[in-house]
Structure formats: structure tokens, C-alpha cells
Amino acid sequence: TPAEQLLSKCPWKEYKSDSGKPYYYNSQTKESRWAKPKELEDLEGYQNTIV
């Protein structure tokens, strides 16, 4: 779907730490963070409005 294509192009991906806590990693900037990036939230919100 178009929304899945947008998400696949987003540099932010969700991973799980050893303790199972989700964290987010940007493959372009090599940045990681615990809080979900706004860019990823926006894309997921867009995906939910299409489905």
C-alpha cells in the first residue's frame, strides 16, 4: 500500500531492547532514542487514516 511504502522509506525503525522495551533508531543519522520520533508517529497516523 502507499502508506506501507512511506513507512518503509522512513529512516526511523522500532526495535526492542534486551529488556523488551521499544526504542527507535534512525539509520541515516545513527541516532537512537526511547521516545517515538514525531516523523514516525505522523506516518503511522497517516497509515491508520488510509486503512
Rank of each mutant, 00 (worst) to 15 (best):
E39I: 02
Q5D: 12
L6E: 09
P11K: 01
I50G: 13
W34H: 11
Y24T: 02
E41R: 10
R33S: 12
E44A: 06
A35L: 12
C10P: 01
K21D: 06
Q47P: 09
Y46S: 14
Y46G: 08
Y23D: 05
K16E: 02
S8W: 07
L43S: 13
L6V: 15
L7H: 14
E39F: 00
E44Y: 05
L6C: 05
E14Q: 06
R33N: 13
K36N: 00
N48L: 02
S32L: 09
Y15Q: 09
R33A: 08
I50M: 15
Y15C: 03
K30Y: 07
K9W: 02
S27T: 12
I50P: 12
S32K: 09
P11S: 09
Q47V: 06
K36E: 02
D18K: 08
K38E: 09
Y25R: 04
Q5Y: 02
K16S: 07
Y24N: 02
T1W: 00
S32D: 02
W34L: 09
D42W: 03
Y24A: 04
Q5P: 05
R33P: 03
L40V: 05
N26V: 01
E41M: 10
T29A: 01
G45L: 12
E14P: 02
L7K: 02
K13T: 15
D42K: 07
R33K: 13
K21I: 15
R33Q: 11
S17C: 02
Q5N: 14
Y15H: 01
P2R: 10
E14K: 04
G20F: 00
L40C: 06
Y15G: 07
K13V: 10
K13S: 11
D42N: 14
P2Y: 09
L43K: 10
Y23H: 02
Y15R: 12
L6K: 11
S17K: 04
L6D: 15
L7V: 08
S19W: 03
E44T: 06
E39L: 03
T1R: 00
T49L: 06
P22F: 07
T29R: 01
W34S: 15
E31K: 03
K30T: 04
S19A: 08
W12V: 06
K30S: 06
Q5V: 07
P37I: 01
A35I: 11
K16G: 04
T29V: 01
E39A: 08
K9G: 09
N26F: 00
V51H: 15
S32W: 09
L40Q: 03
G45D: 13
L40G: 06
S19G: 11
E39W: 01
S19E: 10
K36D: 05
E4C: 03
K13C: 03
D18Y: 08
T1K: 01
T49S: 14
Q28R: 09
G20E: 03
S27E: 09
L7T: 10
L7C: 11
T29C: 10
L40I: 07
E14D: 00
W34P: 08
R33T: 07
T49Q: 12
E39Q: 14
P22V: 12
P2L: 08
K16I: 08
A3H: 15
T29N: 07
Q28M: 13
P2K: 15
P11H: 10
L40N: 11
S17M: 08
S19F: 06
N26T: 01
I50E: 15
W34A: 13
P22Q: 10
K16Q: 14
C10G: 14
P2T: 15
W12R: 03
K21E: 08
L6H: 05
E41H: 05
C10D: 11
L6A: 15
Q28K: 06
E31P: 00
E14G: 13
